[in-house]
Design a protein around this nucleic acid. Structure first.
Lengths: 182, 182
DNA sequence: ACCTGAACACCGTTCAAGT
DNA sequence: ACCTGAACACCGTTCAAGT
């Protein structure tokens, strides 16, 4: 990549990051280009789809969350480890409004630029779930894809402006269904 | 209402109904007017907001669902009654893609044209929940608003194209958290 | 190589002008 | 009263023309 292109790429990314946090994942592409003082074509050249842009923005965070899962795989209380991780994921998506819809599409569409990142997240959660299941602290009849969907549903609830507060309580209700009663 | 206006109103409604089923709740308003062979202004005159149009389209169905809840309030098995009703609601929203997002906004916004209809639905569910709680078949620490949110989250899951199948199983998982174990 | 921005095909919504 | 559709301010996306 040429130096000037690299500069545009990085600048675009930092502007898009801010836009994602402030305006949500459905910010207009035009707006991002405008805020970055760059032609729309430049934005599309670097990120041919919105998913490609989201992937660039989220990949490292998703990797961090997967890393966190790895750490938690060493924890003694397998149920608590799963719980902590789930809360962390939901807190992250909560800070990035509008991210769930594209994630849900991407996880089932290998052609999506966001697919790999989402799979990484799902896999990380699945490993924590498996360990809890082996330990007998989580119900055994659940797989990684289902866990992903449950997280997504709760995260979506939390994304709804006036429902976020209730979503916290409902997280516990649903968590109670995933983990065996104490 | 003048006769010609009434005719436009009815025609618009029947076209919008078809559009809602075939293209989802986020059909373009322009498209509806176009399909109805009517100027956009006519559509907006009869339905000043998308919520107003959705309300006109859904009100009677929501009333039916509320009526169904009333019938089920006479059922012997209070837990099964709640379950059956929940499935019915989710099946309905599943047939009307894209309806959940506006419903979630409307239920918390008294100014929305869709508010009343949503409240009716919430109230109907709450009555079934209360009866099951009084009967000891549903967990007592849950209110109507929380039940509404749980339904919404499951219905949203079912709205996601590739996740609908899993949503059916996850309905049972979550239902198991709401109802007391058998 | 890379950037620009006009161009195309769409939106939601309003409101002057018509009947 | 009611209807029409041009008008305005937006989109996403592409691609010829420029550097």
């Amino acid at each position: 990549m040429r130096a000037d292109a690299k500069k545009n790429y990085d600048h675009l990314l930092s502007i898009a990051q801010k836009a994602l946090l402030e305006q949500g994942a459905d910010v207009s592409m035009r707006d991002i280009a405008r805020q970055a003082d760059v032609g729309v074509g430049t934005l599309y050249r670097h990120f041919p789809t919105r998913e490609a842009l989201l992937d660039a923005l989220l990949r490292s965070s998703f990797d961090d969350l997967a890393g966190k899962a790895n750490e938690l795989n060493g924890a003694a209380e397998t149920d608590k480890a799963l719980l902590v991780w789930l809360e962390e994921v939901i807190a992250f998506t909560h800070a990035h409004r509008g991210i769930l819809e594209p994630m849900m599409s991407a996880i089932e569409d290998p052609a999506s630029a966001l697919h790999e990142s989402c799979v990484r997240l799902k896999t990380a959660g699945a490993s924590l779930l498996r360990r809890a299941q082996a330990d007998g602290t989580a119900r055994p009849d659940l797989d990684g894809a289902e866990l992903f969907d449950l997280i997504a549903a709760l995260a979506w609830l939390r994304e709804q402006p006036a429902h976020a507060q209730r979503a916290a309580r409902l997280f516990n209700v649903v968590a109670g269904a995933v983990l065996k009663a104490p």
